[in-house]
Design a protein around this nucleic acid. Structure first.
Lengths: 231, 231
DNA sequence: ATCCTTTCTCGTCTTGCTGACGATAACCAC
DNA sequence: GTGGTTATCGTCAGCAAGACGAGAAAGGAT
């Protein structure tokens, strides 16, 4: 084994949330070269005795300060171009995390310079390494997964209204959805949401029923993005 | 960089094809420990100056003896449990390849003990390492991708009939599809297939029109698997 | 040559989902 | 109360999909 070339292996996180009707991503500002003072995805090296999902979950808690079992975490893809890190041969396994809007501001161990940025303003930001590519892949994955899975609920607190869920879709897809058709669709898809038996209080307008995430892992039939002229 | 733990990085391939109405996978029989004499996914180490997709394409041509630009190759996922290889810490990036039934029998450089096995008979085969998990993930990916992409054409030669395309779906999904509805669906989905202007000869029954793959990357609306009781 | 079998290809009908939108219910502020 | 706002239900037309009929075009058997 020792005769084979040694690689460094890292995990990087695309952590998304919806706050104030904007899709936001957790980024850290690099304090050391290369790419000093540039924004980058949070991440770090995988321990020698550590499994990849464990490393991703560890980095997520370190950066957000949130005990992990909330939201959603999945592997996104692996990026290993020989030139992607000027320091040497680093292969990174990217993970995608979807979290509810955390009342806890970012204040984890390692989160000195971490902050939420609206993804709409990251385009100019010139992320470090190949992180702009990873971010683009993560966004497309998230947008696609909202279509055929109930993962929009991962952006929500445990109990939420149909309207809240709709704003998630509208924010991630950057489009408007008809409230009445959306309501019909969500409540008629088996296993998507389950009534929590309670209603909202204090908001404007008629109180809304609260729902919890249902047991379904896939949506049948799927939600469809508007502007279906993708062929 | 040198203070970080060194990993070995490999690529492993889930290579699928449809031959004789069976979904088959390319496997190699291991000649050395660990897992000696067990079937395993083809694969190998990533060169120090080699990008991951290049390594996957290289392994594919080595194992199949086919110049690569046919079929389809995509990253499947990365597997890096600390215990997955008894020789040390090996992280493997798995790729999924979909190929037409190759008239060239397996006779590549490295393909001494390579062979096509029907996936239905691999369940008992006790693959080496965690390759059974990787295979299961690859199968599920392939089945899902047939729904919303035109990738079934990757299993076909450049020109094919609608009936041939239907047998691909039936084989991969292990279900039966109505020939008339399938024909209507495929020909009415924009960009899925384009007429080649020629017809088959010599087969039984009425000659069929030949088609080529169209420019679409996504199917709208998607093909739907039968038995839609997945909620 | 004629019939029969096989396979391809075009229609028809019904059912269910979707988008557009009207209407009502239930809260808050004044 | 009145008006504004939001939630929820209902209606209707259009499209897509499943079930199936029927004709077209070949090969094989007699």
């Amino acid at each position: 084994m020792a005769e084979y070339p040694p690689f460094a292996v890292t995990v990087d996180l695309v952590v998304l949330t919806v706050r104030a009707d904007e899709l936001c991503i957790l980024l850290v500002r690099r304090g050391v070269p290369p790419y000093q003072d540039r924004w980058a995805l949070p991440g770090g090296f995988v321990g020698f005795d550590e499994d990849l999902p464990d490393a991703a979950a560890r980095e997520l808690t370190e950066e957000t300060g949130v005990p992990e079992p909330i939201g959603h975490l999945e592997q996104l893809g692996t990026y290993g171009s020989p030139k992607r890190d000027p320091r040497g041969r680093v292969v990174t396994v990217a993970y995608l995390a979807l979290l509810p809007d955390l009342p806890t501001p970012v204040a984890g161990t390692d989160a000195a310079a971490a902050d939420w940025l609206p993804v709409s303003r990251v385009a100019d930001a010139q992320l470090a390494f190949d992180h702009d590519v990873i971010l683009a892949d993560g966004l497309e994955r998230a947008r696609a997964k909202l279509e055929y899975t109930p993962l929009a609920t991962a952006f929500c607190p445990p109990e939420f209204t149909i309207a809240r869920l709709r704003t998630i879709y509208e924010t991630v897809w950057n489009s408007r959805l008809d409230p009445r058709n959306f309501h019909r669709k969500v409540t008629s898809t088996p296993g998507f949401v389950e009534p929590a038996g309670r209603v909202t209080e204090g908001d404007r307008g008629r109180p809304a029923q609260l729902f919890r995430r249902g047991p379904a892992e896939l949506l049948h039939p799927p939600m469809l993005r508007p502007s279906v002229t993708r062929g």
